[in-house]
Simulated scan of single mutants.
Amino acid sequence: MKKGIFILTAIVWIVLIYLAQILAYALNTLSNSNDKQKIFSDITQLFIPPAKHPISTIFKFVSEQNTVFFVIGGIATIICIYILIKQLFENKDGNEKNQDYKIAKHGSHGSAKFAEDSELFSEGHYKKMKENDITNYVYNSLDKSLIEERSEEK
C-alpha cells in the first residue's frame, strides 16, 4: 500500500511540475516580449513549446533561476509532501470516526454484523424452508374464489 502511495504522489508531482513549467514559460514570454499583439494573435506559441519539450524548458528555468517556476514548483512540492505525510502517518485502524474502519472491521456499515444461521434459525425465530414449500404455502393460503372473481372482472 505504501508503495502505491509513493507512486501516486510522484505522478501527481510530475504532472504539477509539468503544468508549472508551462505556466512559467507563458508568463516569462509575456513579460519579456515587446510585441504583445503578435503573441495574442497566436496564443498557442505560449503553451506549445514547453508542452513539447518540458525537460529542456525545466533545465532552462533552473539555469536562469526563474523565480516563477521555483515558486510554483515549490508549492507543488509542498502539496505533494503534505499529501504523502498525511497518507503515511494517518492511523486508520484506531480511528473510530473513520467510516472505512467501521465498514472494514465488521464487514458492514455501523455496528451491525452478519448473523450466523444458528442465531437466525433458532426456536422462535425464522424457519428454514425450501422455495417450493414457500410457494405452495402462499398459493394454499390464498382465497381461490376471490382470485377467480378478480380475474373475471378484467
Rank of each mutant, 00 (worst) to 15 (best):
F70R: 05
K38N: 10
L27A: 10
N28V: 03
I43V: 08
S31Y: 15
F61R: 03
F69E: 02
S118Y: 04
L16S: 05
I103A: 09
I75Q: 02
A24V: 04
G73I: 04
N34T: 14
G107Y: 08
L84W: 15
S63T: 04
A76S: 13
S63M: 07
S33I: 08
V71D: 06
L120V: 14
A20C: 07
S118A: 10
G107M: 08
D42T: 15
K86G: 12
N91I: 05
T29K: 12
N66S: 08
D143M: 01
S151C: 09
M129W: 13
E153D: 12
K2Q: 10
F89H: 11
L120G: 03
S56G: 06
H106I: 08
K52C: 00
A112K: 10
I22R: 03
Q65H: 11
K86H: 13
I48L: 14
T44C: 10
R150Y: 07
N91T: 03
I103T: 12
E116M: 11
T29H: 05
Y18D: 02
L16M: 09
E96R: 05
I134D: 09
R150L: 09
C80H: 11
I39D: 04
E123I: 09
I39N: 07
E96Q: 07
L16F: 14
H106K: 13
E123D: 05
L30A: 00
L146Q: 11
L8M: 03
S41E: 12
N95H: 12
F40D: 00
T44Q: 15
Y82F: 15
E148Q: 06
P54G: 03
A20M: 06
E90F: 15
I78E: 02
G73D: 02
S151L: 15
D143F: 03
I81N: 13
D143Y: 06
F40E: 02
E148L: 09
F40A: 01
Q87A: 15
A20D: 06
L84N: 12
L142A: 03
E149F: 07
H53P: 02
K105E: 05
L30M: 05
A24C: 01
I7Y: 11
I72F: 09
I58W: 07
